[in-house]
Nucleic acid binder design. Structure first.
Lengths: 144, 144
DNA sequence: TTGACAGACGATAAGAATTATCGTTTACTA
DNA sequence: TAGTAAACGATAATTCTTATCGTCTGTCAA
């Protein structure tokens, strides 16, 4: 929608990555998908166009696209199950560089709207806010 | 903090689970932890008290505690990496029963406070809100 | 208190998702 | 167009989590 086929080459140049056939097809197919596809789902679709493509290539390029900011991943997750030990109402600050999570009290964040029902009839139990940003440590490290 | 050692037995009775030594030690140790420990971290601590405990037992009981609502997991994660294909500003409605994710436009959710810096000096890039609740399909299925 | 039985335990194999390795091929720059 | 760094495909390896299974332990009724 926002990137036309002609700009894929420029997009790659911007990010200093090579324009390969696999990369281009992958990009176009991903753009045509909606929702929150998994690597396997993307792989299944790309294979229809490039039967010989490897799953590893799909993974490598999805990561590349995410790192370049071309696509975004749904909720930074931390590989492993994590249990919440803070029983006070709070949310999370997630560092986009080091992926560290720290807590912020709900009161310090400010209040959220609390509709009981959202469009579509979704029944709200609670809100979980991830504040994505740069933690103080990474701000200090960041040289540019 | 909120559950005393004496109430662990009651807590188990409420949820219809047996009071075992492993379970009790696990519970107490987890309560003493802070942050967002992983199963491995919990396992490492519990092993100091019960060297013979199995990692599988730790996993099984963490799940049990989470299902019972005794503890909560940090951000419902979906097992696999998911890529965001909706480029409009939006957030997510996550069903606590079936774990499905659907999008909600930021405008439909209402505005969030947009401090540039949060307590501790965390630099905000963006907010990602997960609205946890029950999707219409699961509301229909829900009999009780 | 005891005895039966469901459920919990530990050990470990299996499974799923992801990443690393490596030899071959391809794209970019001069 | 040649040289080189990067990308590719195949697949082994890793990591995290779950399943299996034989043994053991809580729970509940007698």
């Amino acid at each position: 929608m926002e990137f036309s086929a002609t700009t894929f080459r420029e997009l790659c140049q911007q990010h200093g990555i090579a324009v390969t056939h696999q990369r281009q097809v992958l990009f176009e197919i991903m753009q045509g998908m909606h929702g929150h596809p998994s690597p396997e789902e993307v792989y299944a679709r790309v294979k229809k166009k490039i039967p010989a493509i490897s799953l590893a290539t799909v993974y490598k390029n999805i990561h590349l696209f995410v790192e370049s900011g071309i696509f975004r991943e749904v909720s930074m997750h931390h590989g492993t199950l994590r249990v919440e030990m803070n029983s006070r109402p709070h949310h999370h600050m997630v560092c986009s560089m080091c992926k560290s999570i720290s807590d912020i009290d709900e009161a310090d964040l400010g209040l959220l709207p609390s509709h009981q029902k959202l469009p579509g009839g979704f029944l709200v139990e609670r809100y979980a806010v991830d504040v994505i940003g740069i933690c103080p440590e990474c701000q200090a490290k960041k040289v540019n």
